[in-house]
């Protein structure tokens, strides 16, 4: 119930905002055509403007539904097509980023000296604005003949390995001294200590960081679609929408992006719950 109330309140504010922001646009339209108009017509006009400043929610939903169901899924006008393009880059980037992030964390935990030498660079890598970096990636990779999915996935991976590394360094170092001493009393090998103690200890933090990583990975994939000039993907839709002033299309693409993000987090969440159950977590 409280959730519903908040949603309704937000919708109401949105509609009021749409009326106020689009008012001038619609009035100018009427005056340009020198037709008489009533206030009711004016308000109705703000709800149906073709290129509103702020699109009304029902317009967004209608366009969204049309973009999804109105075209065959493989048509370049279908949002499903664009979502699939972005999603594949997101997944590939997420997998590459997660694997790389975990690899770095293992290096840092196994060789403590690396923490001092490696970590500043890792942090620096995240301080460079990705919007500036993305075109460089795309152009350089394009020049050596790598196009399409991989450069985008690389940018995703570049962004999303960071939370995984930070989370896993903490997770892999989380076993307490007694748990480690036990392994020593059994003369366990370093790889046994890793697989039987450090790795399982890190699983809760692994999932926490994967949840962050997968949304960042989606953002990375969308950002990576912008400098290519945007043939396909949600980023391309956003670019085209802003280029041609198609605000409703912009909003529909944003809606698709947020739904993808929610879906991806839910997917990681489900995996997390299955893992937790297998590992005897209190329910």
């Amino acid at each position: 119930m409280p959730v519903l109330a908040v949603v309704l309140a937000l919708l109401a504010i949105w509609y009021v905002g749409a009326v106020l922001m689009n008012m001038k646009l619609v009035r100018d339209g009427f005056e340009r055509e020198e037709t008489k108009y009533t206030t009711a017509e004016l308000i109705a006009g703000t709800m149906t403007a073709e290129r509103p400043l702020l699109a009304a929610p029902h317009q967004i939903v209608a366009t969204f539904a049309d973009d999804i169901f109105g075209y065959p899924p493989n048509s370049p006008r279908s949002l499903i097509y664009h979502s699939a393009v972005t999603l594949s880059a997101t997944f590939l980037g997420f997998v590459m980023g997660a694997v790389f992030g975990i690899f770095l964390a293992i290096l840092i935990v196994q060789f403590r000296t690396l923490e001092k030498s490696l970590l500043p660079w890792i942090i620096c890598s995240q301080m460079v604005p990705i919007l500036a970096l993305a075109p460089i990636f795309i152009v350089v990779l394009g020049a050596i003949g790598v196009h399409g999915l991989f450069p985008k996935a690389l940018i995703s991976a570049y962004l999303c390995f960071f939370p995984v590394t930070i989370g896993m360094v903490k997770g892999l170092s989380s076993p307490d001294p007694i748990q480690r001493d036990l392994m020593r009393t059994w003369s366990a090998t370093p790889s046994q200590v890793f697989w039987k103690l450090r790795w399982p200890s890190a699983v809760p933090l692994l999932f926490a960081s994967l949840k962050v990583a997968i949304t960042i990975s989606l953002i990375g994939a969308i950002v990576a679609e912008l400098p290519t000039g945007g043939q396909a993907g949600i980023g391309a839709r956003l670019l085209a929408g802003s280029y041609y002033g198609q605000t409703i299309q912009l909003w529909a693409a944003l809606l698709a992006a947020s739904m993808l993000a929610a879906g991806l987090i839910a997917l990681v969440g489900l995996t997390e719950r299955a893992a937790a159950r297998a590992m005897g977590a209190r329910s």
Binding site: I178, D181, R184, S187, P200, V203, G280
Partner: peptide, 21 residues
């Protein structure tokens, strides 16, 4: 002796690994 696994050690805390039965 440790490498020969000559002893079993019981710590102050049970320190069972919580993810194992």
């Amino acid at each position: 002796a440790r490498l020969e696994r000559a002893y079993g050690y019981v710590f102050q805390a049970p320190a069972l690994y919580p993810w194992r039965t």
